Amino acid sequence: MRVLIVEDEERLASTLSIGLRAEGFLVVHVSNGVDGLWQAAEHNFDVIVLDIMLPGLNGYEVLRQLRERNVWTPVLMLTAKDGEYDQTDAFDLGADDYLTKPFSFIVLVARLRALVRRGAPQRPTMLTAGTLSLDPARRAVERSGTPIRLTPREFGLLEYLMRNKDTVVTKAEILHNVWDEHYSGPDNVVEVYVGYVRRKIDIPFGTNTIETIRGVGYRLESGAYARGN
């Protein structure tokens, strides 16, 4: 089993390399994000151990570029960053597992073996609604081939609506799935972000994709072709 370790802490990387070789892994180690991206994109590995805080390119950027290039090797993020949002960002970008420092080497090996058994994930399915398309892997949105730039929150909102197209979803459901279950702010933030998304995916193209269901919530129509406002 070939494992790529992208870790700039030399002592930790050396310890991991020695331990994983003893467990039967073939180990390649690089100490910066640029080399990590090149190795992962140009060579075949069964699993990747990727730190977040790296010189050159951080782990988030390495992971994002790998998934954009359709490299689906399982990735375990190994980092001292243990916040909920750090983990959420990693999983949103396509990480398969997340382990914080300090960690148990036995647990690390078990998780790596589990990822190898599971194999590389399949590329997420492209979401479409008429001329609108959203690629969860590349985190890209297009209307009739024209790229549309969305913020991470706008992208999350549109992705949730597209995964539930032709279904009415409430503000509470959107807040729970796009923000988080502990969000305690006003629910009119949903209206604000729906407005932001409409101004980017509809108004420039003369389309009407997201329907407001008064008193209930919103519905994204699967056949939202250009038809005027």
Rank of each mutant, 00 (worst) to 15 (best):
residue 30 V to S: 01
residue 184 S to K: 14
residue 42 E to Q: 13
residue 62 V to M: 05
residue 168 V to D: 11
residue 203 I to M: 10
residue 197 V to L: 02
residue 222 S to Y: 02
residue 191 E to Q: 11
residue 135 D to Q: 11
residue 166 D to T: 12
residue 58 N to H: 01
residue 48 I to V: 14
residue 145 G to I: 02
residue 3 V to H: 04
residue 64 R to D: 10
residue 228 G to W: 04
residue 25 F to C: 02
residue 143 R to S: 11
residue 221 E to W: 12
residue 75 V to L: 02
residue 196 Y to S: 13
residue 68 E to W: 05
residue 51 D to M: 01
residue 146 T to E: 15
residue 117 R to P: 05
residue 26 L to G: 08
residue 44 N to F: 05
residue 96 D to W: 09
residue 3 V to P: 00
residue 15 T to G: 12
residue 120 A to K: 07
residue 229 N to L: 13
residue 166 D to R: 09
residue 215 G to I: 05
residue 111 R to Q: 10
residue 11 R to C: 01
residue 160 Y to C: 14
residue 213 I to P: 09
residue 73 T to S: 01
residue 86 D to Q: 06
residue 228 G to L: 04
residue 49 V to Y: 00
residue 197 V to T: 07
residue 68 E to R: 14
residue 132 L to K: 02
residue 39 Q to H: 13
residue 3 V to Y: 03
residue 227 R to N: 15
residue 148 I to T: 08
residue 32 N to S: 07
residue 187 D to H: 08
residue 206 G to Q: 08
residue 78 L to N: 08
residue 37 L to D: 02
residue 22 A to M: 01
residue 173 E to A: 14
residue 48 I to E: 04
residue 169 V to W: 10
residue 126 M to W: 11
residue 169 V to E: 02
residue 38 W to C: 12
residue 7 E to Y: 03
residue 26 L to Y: 14
residue 129 A to C: 06
residue 20 L to R: 04
residue 54 L to P: 09
residue 106 I to C: 04
residue 194 V to N: 09
residue 87 Q to P: 01
residue 188 N to R: 10
residue 220 L to V: 08
residue 39 Q to E: 13
residue 61 E to V: 07
residue 123 R to S: 10
residue 182 H to Y: 10
residue 179 W to D: 09
residue 192 V to F: 15
residue 157 L to Q: 10
residue 181 E to S: 13
residue 49 V to I: 15
residue 6 V to M: 00
residue 19 G to Q: 12
residue 196 Y to K: 14
residue 18 I to L: 14
residue 169 V to R: 06
residue 135 D to E: 08
residue 24 G to M: 05
residue 186 P to H: 13
residue 68 E to S: 12
residue 41 A to S: 15
residue 168 V to I: 12
residue 163 R to G: 15
residue 211 E to L: 10
residue 114 A to D: 11
residue 43 H to P: 07
residue 54 L to G: 08
residue 201 I to E: 07
residue 169 V to Q: 05
residue 200 K to A: 09
residue 112 L to A: 01
residue 110 A to Q: 07
residue 193 Y to I: 15
residue 227 R to A: 15
residue 61 E to L: 01
residue 16 L to C: 04
residue 171 K to C: 01
residue 10 E to V: 14
residue 47 V to W: 00
residue 149 R to K: 15
residue 177 N to V: 05
residue 92 D to E: 15
residue 224 A to S: 15
residue 177 N to T: 04
residue 33 G to H: 03
residue 128 T to V: 09
residue 144 S to P: 03
residue 64 R to I: 05
residue 14 S to W: 11
residue 59 G to M: 00
residue 129 A to K: 00
residue 35 D to K: 10
residue 3 V to T: 11
residue 228 G to R: 03
residue 48 I to C: 11
residue 90 A to W: 07
residue 97 D to G: 06
residue 183 Y to M: 05
residue 65 Q to E: 11
residue 226 A to K: 09
residue 105 F to G: 03
residue 221 E to L: 14
residue 203 I to W: 12
residue 217 G to D: 09
residue 42 E to H: 09
residue 65 Q to L: 13
residue 179 W to R: 04
residue 185 G to N: 08
residue 137 A to H: 02
residue 69 R to T: 08
residue 181 E to V: 14
residue 208 N to H: 14
residue 165 K to Y: 06
residue 226 A to S: 09
residue 45 F to R: 00
